[in-house]
Amino acid sequence: MGHADDPLLPGFVLHRTPFRESSLLLEVFTPSGRLGLVARGGRGKRSRIAAIVQPFVPLWLSWTGQGDLATLAHVELRPPPLSLTGRALFTAFYVNELLLRLTSRHDPQPELFEHYQWLLWQLVAGAEEWTLRRFEVVLLAELGYGLLLHCDGDGRPLRPDSRYCYHLERGPLPLQGEAPCPLTISGETLLALDGHSPPQLGAEREAKRLLRAVIHHHLGGRPLRSRELFRQMFVRHTDQGE
């Protein structure tokens, strides 16, 4: 990787910030993982680059140089165009923040890249919250933080009609009578999150609580800014959050 005549790779900009006098610093996500790229002249307002290196725009990219900051060599649009609007756009910002916070640079993630791309198209098509939960499950699994969703913490198969207490380090354990548990969840919801069955009534709420707790744990407790914005925005109309 890293020569101007390298073939173009598919990619997305996760985030961009001004860099030096007229450049942009891009965090991009490609099948080779996340990397930092300097787009020289990318802040020239009439620059062709500035117009297309935006989040959620499917791109072809190549870069030169190695190490922590490479230089964007070539970029072009990768049709078809992906047009996110409204609430889906805020969900997509949340997903970008998750990727920025949870992935490391230069850690190849071809599977996760495909899932990310799939999720964006699902959001364009009006995906429901459950799609986002399934993406979060895949994201955690691909990064080595996978949830235990097919058996309990002692290796016994999960029973859809049982309730469990999800322990962040051990996984789900059958709920014991009076013992307090901060994170209860049904076997049915756990199995649905694993992709074995469609979500039942109430699964979305349970699944959201579980994933929020697990992600919070892996983020070291530092809150997600996009979630805060999302909350401010939608709290006045619904009580769903993201």
Binding site: T85, L89, F93
Partner: peptide, 17 residues
Amino acid sequence: PTVEGEATAHYISELLA
């Protein structure tokens, strides 16, 4: 007409709905 501009527009339209 950037993604951030679009997000801002959506937020404002919700705020003033």
